[in-house]
Amino acid sequence: MGASSSPGILRTILGSCVGICVYDRMKKVGGMAHILLPNNPGDGNPEKYADSAIPLLISRLMKDGAKKEFLSAKLAGGASMFKFNASVTLGQIGERNIEESKKILEKNGIPVLEQDTGGSTGRVIDFFLEDGRMKVKAGGQEKLFYKV
């Protein structure tokens, strides 16, 4: 994860992890968080968990000159194994990652404008810092998300 200004492309590959692309449409600065799990037990690496990585990303962007009122988010990832026993909690981790990411974004007043989440597909994400668009490649097909 990291926050940097344009020009630049942030790329990540996602399974059950969630990529959170946050962008300031006025300042044109953005950054991406790549989280594996929803909740930080307290002493974990803050960048791995939705509830610590997203606030960290937001404060980094604000340091780069972003204003909270101009920030918006796009989400991708959060896939699940095609088949698993319902008693295995890790099976729901993709869904829990999406849920927690949305919750934290909402808490911070950042709207989620677009998302490509869930299912059992792997995703390669490109986040273009020049205009905040997000390209998602999944199962050999590409989709573009432009809203900022």
């Binding site: 399974g15 597909t121 199962g139």
Partner: peptide, 9 residues
């Protein structure tokens, strides 16, 4: 890859 998580745990 393209086969994603279309596997069984």
């Amino acid at each position: 890859g393209a086969d994603g998580l279309y596997h069984e745990l």
